[in-house]
Structure formats: structure tokens, C-alpha cells
């Protein structure tokens, strides 16, 4: 069992920085990111063999950490906790130049399922190509495009109403 623990520590040292950066990117708070990193890694370490596969581990880490931290943002906001994550920073792209401001995107995010949230964050915040998001989520490129289109439609609808 001690071998198990030391292996976990080694994997944490290797992959923890990627988890921490992901959490910091979404939560924008060092203390919240620290807690989230530990929580995410406790999830990841349940499948230790997957963490040892350097070829596939990064997209998996990205997906799990993104889902977890988006949940943290949403739950913290719902509970009215002291920590409220600052707005996500959107990347510049022709696809969403007409999108409303960051706060609006953030409020719209919470109306979607976890997969759509990850798609939207991947494309709009992280600047990922849709194909890259598709690989991360194990979806087809067409599904990613459809989910993003639905998200953008709702965002535009909110802009029109306001």
C-alpha cells in the first residue's frame, strides 16, 4: 500500500501542475485553485493506470479539471459564497465577435450541461479548435459544432432581448 501512496505522490508531482494551471485559469484564485487541484487529483488518482499513459492523459486531465472547476464556479455562485470567481476571459475570434460581454457568457454557461460548458469554454476561453475540443471530449466534430452553435444562439438571443 505504501508503494501505492508513493506512486500517487509521483504522479501528482508530474501532473499536478497541469491540473493547477487549469483550475487557476477557470477559478482565477490561488486558494480556490489549490483546493480544486487536490479535489480533481483525488478523482484522477482513482484511475492510476490512466495517469501513467502519457499519450492520453492530458486531454483527460483537461476534461476532468474543467468540469470540476466550472462546477465550483457555478456552485459557489449559487450558494452566495464569499468566493466568486472573476469572469472568464474570452479569446478574440471571428466566431464570437458579436457575443455579449464576459459576464453574460458566464451567466449563460450555467444554463447548459457540463459537456456544452466544456465545449464553450474550450473554444471561447481557451481558444481551442473545435477538432481539439472533440478529441478532448470524445465527441465528433459535428457534435461539438452543434453544441457550440446552440450556446452561441442562446447568447445572441440574450443580447437581443437586452
Amino acid at each position: 500500500m505504501s508503494e501505492h501512496r508513493s506512486k500517487a505522490a509521483e504522479l501528482y508531482r508530474t501532473w499536478g501542475p497541469a491540473v493547477y494551471r487549469r483550475c487557476l485559469r477557470i477559478l482565477k484564485d490561488q486558494e480556490a485553485a489549490k483546493d480544486a487541484t487536490q479535489e480533481v487529483f483525488v478523482k484522477l488518482i482513482r484511475d492510476m493506470s490512466k495517469l501513467e499513459d502519457r499519450e492520453t492523459v492530458l486531454p483527460w486531465i483537461y476534461r476532468v479539471a474543467t468540469n470540476h472547476c466550472l462546477n465550483q464556479r457555478r456552485n459557489g455562485s449559487r450558494r452566495g459564497e464569499d468566493f466568486e470567481a472573476p469572469p472568464l476571459e474570452l479569446v478574440a475570434s471571428a466566431d464570437h465577435d458579436t457575443l455579449p460581454d464576459r459576464l453574460l457568457v458566464q451567466s449563460i454557461l450555467s444554463r447548459f450541461d457540463a459537456t456544452t460548458q466544456t465545449v464553450a469554454v474550450g473554444v471561447l476561453v481557451d481558444g481551442m479548435e473545435q477538432e481539439e475540443v472533440a478529441v478532448v471530449l470524445g465527441l465528433s466534430r459535428r457534435t461539438v459544432a452543434r453544441k457550440l452553435a446552440r450556446f452561441l444562439d442562446l447568447a445572441r438571443h440574450h443580447v437581443d432581448r437586452s
Binding site: M1, H4, R5, S6, K7, A8, A9, Y12, R13, G16, P17, A18, Y20, R21, L24, Q30, A33, K34, T37, Q38, F41, V42, I45, R46, M48
Partner: peptide, 27 residues
């Protein structure tokens, strides 16, 4: 940020991760 993780976050949280890895119920 990676350096910060190794300096500050890792030492403060590694024990909890190790404990989780050793806990059969999680697996």
C-alpha cells in the same frame, strides 16, 4: 504557475492525495 504548484500547493496537499490513493473505497 507550475513552479508555484511544486513550491506551495504540492507540499500542502500531497498527503491528502496519497491517502485517497490508498483508500480502497475510492477505487
Amino acid at each position: 504557475q507550475g513552479d508555484d504548484f511544486l513550491r506551495f500547493v504540492y507540499p500542502a496537499t500531497v498527503e491528502a492525495v496519497e491517502a485517497a490513493a490508498a483508500r480502497p473505497s475510492l477505487a
